[in-house]
Design a protein around this nucleic acid. Structure first.
Length: 244
DNA sequence: AGGGTTGTTAGGGG
DNA sequence: GCCCCTAACAACCC
């Protein structure tokens, strides 16, 4: 669920509640929730893996972390503990196992929206500038840096590195300019492929290396290793991905 | 069946 | 203050 494109899909699915008024709220989220009743959902924004529900009085910031989930119009009483439930006359939204916080409107103006790979105003040139300031960073860590590639998660990371033929332990500073530009272009491009495949429930079958055992090009065994400061799983091919 | 994970934050030690 | 490590979170997949 939790990488950037999945959050864009949540936004799409919740769009029908925009303009609707809250009738009740519940859940174990640790913030005062009573003010939400009678508030109108004014809009929904995403930034990377975060989803923002905008109201007049304040904004709710949700992040699904690793295990989070949500549901719309769930009929049966949930067995798992409800983090936040929002009821409208027209239906309901439930969030589970996620971080939910109340933030002020000013929080949204502080965000570097151009850093979101899914955004209409995604700025690849800005990403180049950020990357060249971090020459000693491993590419696998750089892709997961939410200040640079907001929305990119571990799946996107592995698939992007395979697509551009770069091993995860390569240093940013050792990549030729063309390869650096390819990295940035593919971070966005793959994220949109991810979005479309996820929307059609066929994401997993398009994975080329993530959780896979063998290289789809040469058939050799893939390397599976936790790497970098982020220490996240990397899947890569020694032959078809170059170590710079 | 049970360990690992599509992720982030807080806190502590050095 | 920065870097690095650990714990917490507590669901689901293979």
């Amino acid at each position: 669920m939790p990488e950037g494109p999945s959050i864009v899909l949540i936004k799409e699915n919740l769009q029908r509640f925009v303009g609707h008024t809250i009738t009740a709220v519940s859940g174990n989220a640790k913030f005062e929730k009573d003010w939400l009743v009678n508030e109108v959902l004014l809009g929904i924004k995403t930034f990377g893996k975060q989803l923002y529900l905008v109201f007049e009085k304040a904004v709710l910031r949700t992040h699904l972390l690793l295990f989070g989930s949500y549901s719309i119009d769930e009929q049966t009483k949930p067995e798992k503990s409800l983090r936040l439930g929002i009821w409208f006359d027209s239906g309901s939204i439930f969030f589970y196992t996620c971080s939910v916080k109340e933030v002020e409107h000013s929080y949204l103006t502080e965000i570097d929206w151009q850093a979101d790979v899914m955004s209409d105003i995604w700025d690849p040139k800005k990403a180049v500038r950020k990357l060249i300031s971090l020459p000693d960073t491993l590419v696998c860590d750089a892709l997961l840096d939410q200040q640079i590639f907001s929305g990119v998660g571990n799946i996107i990371k592995n698939e992007v590195l395979f697509r551009i033929g770069v091993q995860p332990e390569s240093l940013i500073g050792d990549l030729p300019t063309a390869k650096l530009n390819q990295l940035i272009a593919e971070a966005r491009n793959y994220s949109f492929d991810f979005l479309n495949w996820k929307r059609d429930f066929v994401l997993k079958k398009h994975w080329l290396v993530h959780t896979k055992s063998n290289c789809p090009i040469c058939g050799e065994r893939l390397i599976r290793k936790h790497l970098g400061k982020t220490n996240r799983r990397c899947f890569y091919c020694l032959k078809d991905q170059k170590r710079y």
